[in-house]
Nucleic acid binder design. Sequence first.
DNA 1: CGGTCCATGTGATTGTGAACACGAGAACGC
DNA 2: GCGTTCTCGTGTTCACAATCACATGGACCG
Lengths: 221, 221
Amino acid sequence: MMSSVPPRRRIPEATVARLPVYQRSLTELREGGVATVSSEQLADLAGVNAAKVRKDLSYLGSYGTRGVGYEVEYLLFQMNRELGLSQDLGVVIVGMGNLGQALANYGGFGERGFPVGALVDTDATKVGNVVHGHTVQHLDDLEDIVGKGRIRIGIIATPVEAAQNVADLLVGAGVESILNFAPTTVHVPEGVTLRKVDLALELQILGFYQHRDAPDAAVEA
Amino acid sequence: MMSSVPPRRRIPEATVARLPVYQRSLTELREGGVATVSSEQLADLAGVNAAKVRKDLSYLGSYGTRGVGYEVEYLLFQMNRELGLSQDLGVVIVGMGNLGQALANYGGFGERGFPVGALVDTDATKVGNVVHGHTVQHLDDLEDIVGKGRIRIGIIATPVEAAQNVADLLVGAGVESILNFAPTTVHVPEGVTLRKVDLALELQILGFYQHRDAPDAAVEA
DNA sequence: CGGTCCATGTGATTGTGAACACGAGAACGC
DNA sequence: GCGTTCTCGTGTTCACAATCACATGGACCG
């Protein structure tokens, strides 16, 4: 029997990427004491159009009221449940350079259900230091750290040369999801989810469009 | 005769986002002394499949040699030209918190054609400090800074509350492209290109899939 | 209690990107 | 100098995401 259909209706990847944006906007509305919100208002806050909001939210279920809108509190609860925010997923940050330290100090992770559980580096001058309340540990102890700390997600903030090795070690230690900040392509076995963020890459995309819109800009003046 | 084609063939957004990845891989190959590369090799390095590489590169023109591959040096030159890397675009980073400082210290920007031209904050204890060779200046002087420094791109690394205001100021000062790291939606007038990077958002997407693949994980143990 | 209003929810349509397969053409060996 | 081989380039097909339009059904007013 092939009853291996996912619990609910399958949610498109593009929608998954937008749900956290809605969730953020909804949280802000709740802080502001707003009780209900229409798809149009929410669309404006999230920077998309209303039809897309309704379509996206419909994947979660019919939580809106026709003629009125969505109850902020209730929708937020359902969305958090769907996004898995009800359970915290521990994070280990590997690499305590400038970026790693910034990430460790970045408050947004814990707030949104991803508590930083451990910090790791190989540099002897960094191991033992305390960053944002955590003692930096050595990469060699990764397996122990991941196992004992219930770490589920690894963040790579190392130099390019170390990235692949760190990814392998993270996978070996049992981490199931990896977020890679090193500007290089790393390979992971099937079953492990990988996402990458390349800070300079985003700038290059911006630069491309700017170059395209005004190719002669370098000439003027 | 339908010669009303834009300057060159229009390049799909998805392809634009991948070009810098190829460019990175090509640079590595050149450093390694490799002269030619096949679409398959390049695909492996970039983490995509060969057909996509060929399709993407074909948008730039026919720079490959059938039966042989692409000449690394030449392809890199053409790609840099297309990406606009031949002209540097100055960058101003607004917000010298942990993230802003990490970005200022991040070497990858200058290397790839985006020299950091100025650092800005409003905090009196930060203005005047030297970070990565640049003296932190006050937000009030933004217009002067952008004008004199030939700044073309602004990076927002401020708290959420300040993001929209900073975006407005950047636009007012003549910046044409903005990269927003603040986890909130900012609006810009037409003609200004905006991209956003939300560090926690990427984690949430990872978390969603992990939650989906093992929804009962919170129950065990 | 009935009618009107209004925003949701969804089926249909359009557009865009990914995957595929095959034709074209250059280098190399014989 | 001919044929073989290898890889690019691209037309076609397929899948998915965005958009649109309208029917649905609850809330509110009189």
